[in-house]
Amino acid sequence: MIALLRYQAALLLGSHRWLPPILLYAGFLVVGIGTGSPVLDAFAFAAAALLPLTVWLTRVCVTNEPPAARSCAAAAVGPVRAHLAAVLTAALAALPPALAGTAFVALFSDRRSNDHQVTVALLPATACGLAAAVVCLLLGTAVGAVCNRPVLHGTALPVCAGLLGCVLLVVPALSPASAVVRGLVAGSMSGTAEMPWLPLAAAIPISAAVVAAVCHLAARRG
């Protein structure tokens, strides 16, 4: 698995296709947060901005190999593990920007509540921000995996489905991503940071199950 991850990571780095999603994420942070916005609001925004980043990176990773090269790797390790390596590489590649985004917010935002009345302790707030980032990273990767090969083939359909998936993750109250973002926004109103344990506990098994199902489908549908 380590060898596969190294191969996929080298493929991702060498293809330079990671650049547009990362630039988009950086642009989101700079334009949407800037300096001096309330810290918990900024963490909520940074976490939500991770969704399109991870969906896009997952698409890049699972479509990076030409079919012939994919067949060669799949013969060596089996199609399930080959696909899993691509999805895991995407999740791992989203980790550095997620950490950088969290650090950016922690360093440059205003450590007070929305109405500038209550001071927010930075350390618990950053922990909440990191947890929210992890939830969004996991769910974004799962949505990216569902919206691409082997479930949806081609370009138009996966891209549209990915966009729709991002929206569906943020809007309804049921999704763990939505729950963490709303939790941070609500915390920003009152100036209290609450650790999003429940969404975190939900996001891990959901994304693991979704990715496992998609990887098993890779063996059936290629």
Partner: peptide, 15 residues
């Protein structure tokens, strides 16, 4: 342990 050689190997890889 299996290995496979495809008929055509398009070289669109950054290696």
């Amino acid at each position: 342990r299996t290995a496979y050689v495809p008929e055509r190997f398009p070289p669109a890889l950054p290696f």
